[in-house]
Amino acid sequence: MAPDYKVKYDKREVHLRQMSLVRETSTLLSKELKLEFRQLYALSSLMLYAVSTCMVVYMAFHEMEPLEWVTILWIILLFASLNAVGKSFWQEGNGRNYYYYYLCSPLAIILSKIIYNCLLLLAISFITLAIYSLFLGNPVENMTLFGLSILLGATGFAVNFTLLAGIAAKADNNATLTAILGFPLIIPLLGMVIRISKNAVLGVESLNTNRDLMMTASMISIAFVLSLVLFPYLWRD
């Protein structure tokens, strides 16, 4: 029998459950991180992906206008993120998913996946930025704002793509489906972060920057809350 979470708990038990959610999440997260550090599969393959794409862009352009520079960087980050997050669920076989199902709550699973993907994408984004700047120079005027836009972008990609990876994992043909489902959904967010980072590159002092940052953050929070609410339904089979 699967554990039934709908049983009524008294206050102490509720407290214990919350504790166990934190514990389950951190255990799962540390498992993901350990796995990553032992195999170094995701990080190294994505590093290689970043280097080879930057090479391709460099060979194609040699020199770029600042606005082209931002746009191409975001396209590289978008594809790298989709590749990185897209496989978060189908990497583990069906059997192991059932095992998790008996062990912990779906909330712990989605939380740990989202946090792990956030960390992974942040690492990849900043590494890609470094490699990209090495090849193609760095025209950014306002580096703080630019870093903030990359931070928001990576978090947003991680949050949105994690739930979509879960959806695509339930429908067996994964890679294409994740892209079909993910790209239209991510466009508003991508548009916002590209705007912010364009301002950062040109060093434009825009009155709208704060509003844009807040709006991007709230779009990400909505997607985050929605993922937490919806994932338990997806997970139950």
Binding site: L163, L164, I167, K170, A171, L181, L185, I187, P188, M215, M219, I222, A223, L226, L230, Y233, L234, R236, D237
Partner: peptide, 20 residues
């Protein structure tokens, strides 16, 4: 499974429609 997975996506998509 189709009903469950697509319902989840439908809800996610509708919410994404508003900023869009």
């Amino acid at each position: 499974r189709r009903a469950k997975v697509s319902s989840v996506y439908n809800i996610f998509a509708f919410v994404a429609l508003f900023p869009l």
